[in-house]
Design a protein around this nucleic acid. Structure first.
Lengths: 170, 170
DNA sequence: ATATATCCTGGAGTCGACTCCAGGACAAGC
DNA sequence: GCTTGTCCTGGAGTCGACTCCAGGATATAT
């Protein structure tokens, strides 16, 4: 028993056009055709495609999934290559999330900077007296303003904020 | 004192064309021009642009950064909006990384499945006797094969693998 | 004063990942 | 046997985020 492209589309929640696009792109070299030239998907094909959708959702490019599929066809000798490909993507994503967390930390710092400035009625409270330069260790002060209770949780945030110190504030 | 687009490009590691593209896209509404119509970047502009690059690196789209900048111009009343925009992106990324980790767990499971099959000389060791169906609780067996030492660390992985059980193996 | 570097705009080109369409071939229900 | 539904291919269109011109003005160095 086999499935039509429409059935697979509904099963996987992927449009027919996208399935055909993936086929053109070499992601589905295993799919057979029936007597009249229509794609006939086996249960097994669908499982494989679930893996592909999985990789796609995880942000892997079609080109890289294509590589992955090609390795698959080569058999167990490429298990390490396949694993490494996934590893690389995991690390890229973790770098991305780290960047975003840095960004949020920076934002928090800036919000504190403004809140205190507004409270004081002037931004100059953050300047080296007599200049327009922000004090060098402002991030340290930011850390100090956190309660002792928060300090534990925020200690790593502070480490990030330090990296942003030379980016200035505004 | 102000900087030219070329200087900013070198300072931020972003091409001149990209800076102009960002300007066209409304990301840099604050930049002034000099007498001859050239962009004149202040130190402050550069700081702001560092934030923009930061958001970009974190995977935020130009359209969303544009929103962010527009909120900025509205002042402190939009601090919450801005924070929430970042929050949303952080969560999307975390979902993505979770997907990828699920995918890797699935892959590990598949590798175990094949290794044991190869060791046994036949895939049928994983089938319900007399059928071509994979045994229902294979993921449980996978969990059991892990050493007691590993089991603690792998327990959450197993939780993920269970979700993949009905995707079959191949 | 001239050569070279840098800047400007408007618009075209590229790339990845789809998405849509025309024109034609089965397939299934009545 | 006709209508309606689903499928096929090849190719064009779209969208986001750049990237690359062409043609012209301004700045800097010698």
């Amino acid at each position: 028993m086999s499935y039509s492209i429409g059935e697979v589309s509904r099963k996987l929640g992927v449009t027919i056009d996208t399935i055909r696009y993936y086929d053109k792109a070499g992601l589905l070299p295993f799919i057979q055709r029936n007597a009249s030239g229509r794609r006939a998907f086996t249960e097994n094909d669908i499982h494989l495609m679930r893996t592909i959708v999985c990789l796609k959702n995880a942000g892997v490019s079609v080109a890289d999934i294509s590589k992955f599929i090609a390795y698959r066809l080569e058999g167990d000798s490429t298990l390490t290559k396949r694993y490494r490909l996934l590893e690389d993507h995991r690390q890229a994503l973790q770098q991305q999330i780290a960047d975003l967390e840095d960004t949020m930390t920076y934002l928090k710092f800036k919000e504190w900077y403004y809140k205190t400035a507004v409270d004081a009625g002037t931004e100059s409270i953050h300047f080296v007296p007599g200049t327009n330069e922000v004090v060098p260790d402002l991030a340290q002060e930011y850390s100090d303003h956190l309660t002792a209770e928060n300090q534990l949780a925020e200690r790593e945030h502070f480490a990030n904020v330090k990296d942003y110190r030379n980016r200035g504030t505004h």
